[in-house]
Amino acid sequence: MLKLIHGADFHLDAPFGALPPDKARQRRAEQRQLLTRLADLAEEEQADLVLLAGDLLDGGQTYQETVELLARTLGGLGVPVFIAPGNHDCYDPRSVYAGTAWPDNVHIFTSVGVESVALPQLGCVVHGAAFTTPQADRSPLMGFTAPADGLRHLMVLHGNVEGKGRYGPIDRGDIAASGLDYLALGHIHSYSGLQKAGETWWAYPGCPEGRGFDETGDKGVLVVTLGERREDLTARFVPLAGRRYEIVEVDVTGAENAADALRDALPATPSEDICRLALTGQRDFAAPDLNALAALAQPWYFSVSLRDYTRERRDLWARVREDSLTGLLLRSLKERGPDHELAARFALAALENGEDPYP
């Protein structure tokens, strides 16, 4: 049996530009704690090796304490670690990867062409490649086939399966033809589930911690176990994030005011998460004061923001007596009974050039 940890897209030292400067600084410090949790997981699982599929660093500005902690933590794992630089942390002579003295157990792939490292003590070979520029329009898997030599063949890459862009597009046919036992991928920030092309298993673990409201929910890494037979491979998702981004819908329909609706939606106890509260529904009161509502919700979250998607309730049949096309249409639908109310809402929206049903 062979057990590995597969992680990707840590984006250490991300700017967190949507947060106030003090909280952005705090979030970067918290990101570094992901490395400690990664090390704890590797020890707990007694992993044989660690594969990190690119964008460990966000690339805009990398702080020295981050580089030192990364090298020290990976060196302390005591097992082989393989890094395939991605489009945010591409390898070049001026990169952190080139300018840092890495521990002996850490191997960083430095070429767009596939490199291979044999680990005879584990009965496997780890293949990988690197982004050497922020964009790459050719798949490193193209034309690659692992030898049928009785060893387990693993690969770690940063790329986009079936992507048509310039971030390492990878065709499923190339995965199927690769002869790999497992392809550890990075670039997509959500967990893909364990996939298979031909006889090759592959997966994206997603990012281990969200950085915005397009990365909500649990985030983490994979614990991958290879059994004696190729078909026995399993992958288990392990949450690693200290904080989550969450979007909570607050329906104000029927509420006397927005504050009452918001209080009903707040958690029972304060949360460590970063939350966006989305006000929805039809209201019978004035437009909500978002600043006041944010102040009400702030003690319940690490950070909170609000969006107002509510609409003022209007009388559906207010124009029924008009001598107009609208009045004629409404009279016709109202005479047909309450079952035609929804049709009236859509009809009014269409007449007013609205996209959604009339409120």
Rank of each mutant, 00 (worst) to 15 (best):
G7Y: 01
A84N: 07
H189A: 06
L222V: 04
Y301P: 06
G75R: 09
A148Q: 12
E312F: 06
A295N: 12
H107P: 02
H340D: 10
P21I: 05
R27W: 06
V67F: 10
D137M: 04
V79L: 05
R138L: 12
G193H: 08
I108D: 05
T62V: 15
D48R: 01
C275N: 08
R311E: 14
A177V: 05
R314L: 14
G227V: 02
P270Y: 13
E43Q: 14
R311T: 08
T145W: 04
Y97D: 01
Q282N: 09
L316Y: 08
Y245A: 03
E115G: 01
H189V: 03
G123F: 04
A130N: 06
L279F: 06
Q33V: 12
R152N: 07
L351K: 04
E335Q: 11
E115T: 08
L306Q: 07
L41K: 09
R345Q: 15
A101C: 07
A29Q: 15
L222G: 00
I170S: 07
V161L: 09
I170E: 02
A184E: 07
T216F: 07
Q31L: 15
T225L: 06
A255C: 11
P288K: 05
L49I: 06
G54I: 00
G210I: 02
L194W: 09
R243M: 05
A268L: 15
L77S: 06
L306T: 01
M142P: 00
A184G: 04
L51A: 00
L141I: 10
A197K: 02
V221G: 03
R336E: 13
P85H: 05
Q282D: 05
Y63A: 15
D339G: 15
H189G: 05
V320N: 04
R276N: 06
L185D: 02
D339F: 05
R28V: 07
D232K: 07
K219Q: 11
L70M: 14
G165E: 08
L226P: 07
G78N: 11
G165R: 06
L52T: 03
A176K: 00
V221P: 01
G150A: 13
A118Y: 02
A259C: 08
E249N: 08
